[in-house]
């Protein structure tokens, strides 16, 4: 039962992440939705897998995948945002502040 609930919550958050990817205006905001919702959604699914299989071989693998996912997702998000800025991707019109432009010419 716990497994079904956790996997459903995970799929729901992945759906929100995808909606964010479609609705939000520029690359930076889209990446916010993509990293946060999708990472925790996947973690929730992995936890559900752990509950489903118990703490055996598959369960432990799912559990180990969670911290790995956290570290890789955050580093990937940082690299993508930085790369996009240096490439010259424009920020949305609604943006109110840009301190980074002092550094990047």
């Amino acid at each position: 039962m716990a497994a079904v609930i956790l996997i459903s919550v995970g799929v729901l958050f992945n759906l929100f992440g995808c909606l964010g990817l479609l609705r939000l205006p520029d690359m930076y905001n889209r990446l916010q939705a993509a990293t946060k919702c999708v990472t925790l959604g996947c973690c929730s699914i992995l936890l559900g897998v752990m509950f489903h299989y118990g703490l055996g071989s598959a369960g432990f693998r799912a559990l180990v995948a969670i911290p790995v996912l956290f570290f890789t997702a955050t580093v990937a998000a940082h690299a993508l945002v930085r790369g996009a800025y240096h490439f010259g991707t424009k920020m949305d019109k609604r943006s109110v502040k840009d301190d980074y432009s002092e550094i990047v010419k």
Binding site: F13, F16, G17, L19, G20, R23, L24, P25, D26, Y28, N29, Q32, A33, K36, C37, M91, D92, R94, S95, V96, K97, D98, D99, Y100, S101
Partner: peptide, 18 residues
Amino acid sequence: VAYRVLHPGMPIRPGIVK
């Protein structure tokens, strides 16, 4: 994030701060 995505008016005020 879910709130900002699902809200019809999309309450965002983005920017880069130091």
